[in-house]
Computed example of a mutant assay.
Amino acid sequence: MISRTARGRTLRVAAAAVLGAGGATALYTLNEAGGGYAFVLVGAVLGALIALGIDLYRRTARLTEVRISIPQFSELTFVVNDDAQRVSWQLFVESVTRVSIQRLEDDEGLIREALTSLYGLFSTTRDILRAARPSAPGEGLTVEYLAVNLLNRELRPFLSKWHPRLREFESAHPELPEADWPYAAECRSELRRAQAHTREYVIGFARLAGVRDPELMLGATGRDPAV
């Protein structure tokens, strides 16, 4: 299935080719020179090249520099254009609407629910990156860099450690509540840390997308984690 962006780019190229061909035909008619079809062909090619150049300009123009701070890094400088802002907005919306960044106190909720939500966030982030075009080259980091680091530095290590342990307990003791899991307190502590770090990445997505005051949208998740 062709994406809306690809269809739009194809239509722009085709329209430019037609315009170029029309211009070349008019030039040929005015000059009444031989080899008129060559003029038409050259005009079509030039029109298509112009359209491609405009498309490239649209991807690289209006670059915005954004500086953000995230866990394990000092302040980083990113460059974003309209496409990168749209991807950042998608990542922000998918993240902020999940329980994965909602702080889980010792007497609240279920670890299993939080782990499932984190898995969902991992999969969705990967799908969004797969569907998006790579950012155009620029003098800074990209939204892909931020998203991949969220997956590989925060979500993957936590899930790889705790998901198998919890699943083993659930399989061995299906009759016991999750609170009886010997590692429950330790897991919750590390979960809060992972949630706090994930939250900073989510704020980073918001800033790249141009969202004002993303902390207000996150609400109660802004409480400091117990580490």
Rank of each mutant, 00 (worst) to 15 (best):
S95C: 06
E75Y: 08
R126V: 04
G140I: 11
W181Y: 06
S160R: 14
Q195R: 01
E186R: 03
E94L: 05
P71K: 04
L76D: 12
E94G: 05
P137N: 13
F158W: 00
P134Q: 08
E168A: 15
Q195P: 01
V148D: 11
W181H: 03
E144T: 13
R193F: 15
I70R: 10
E178C: 05
E65Q: 08
F92N: 01
R165F: 13
Y119L: 07
S135E: 14
T124A: 11
S100E: 05
P177T: 07
I128P: 00
W162V: 01
V148K: 10
S135P: 15
N149E: 15
D106I: 00
G140A: 14
R188K: 13
Y119C: 09
E75K: 01
L159K: 09
S123E: 15
T124S: 13
E186V: 10
L146W: 02
G138I: 04
F73A: 08
E170F: 04
E94K: 07
W162F: 05
L104W: 00
L176T: 13
C187A: 15
A136R: 14
L91A: 09
R98E: 07
E75C: 08
Y119V: 04
E178M: 02
P134R: 04
F78S: 05
T64E: 15
N149Q: 14
T124P: 03
L63C: 12
F78W: 08
G120L: 12
S117K: 00
G120V: 03
C187F: 07
S117R: 00
L121S: 07
L146T: 07
A136I: 13
L110Q: 02
S189T: 06
D83S: 05
L76R: 13
F169K: 02
L141A: 09
I70N: 03
V80D: 12
R67T: 10
W181A: 02
A194Q: 08
E178N: 01
E190T: 01
L115G: 05
Q102D: 09
I70W: 03
R130E: 07
P174G: 02
A184P: 00
L191V: 00
D107G: 05
V87C: 12
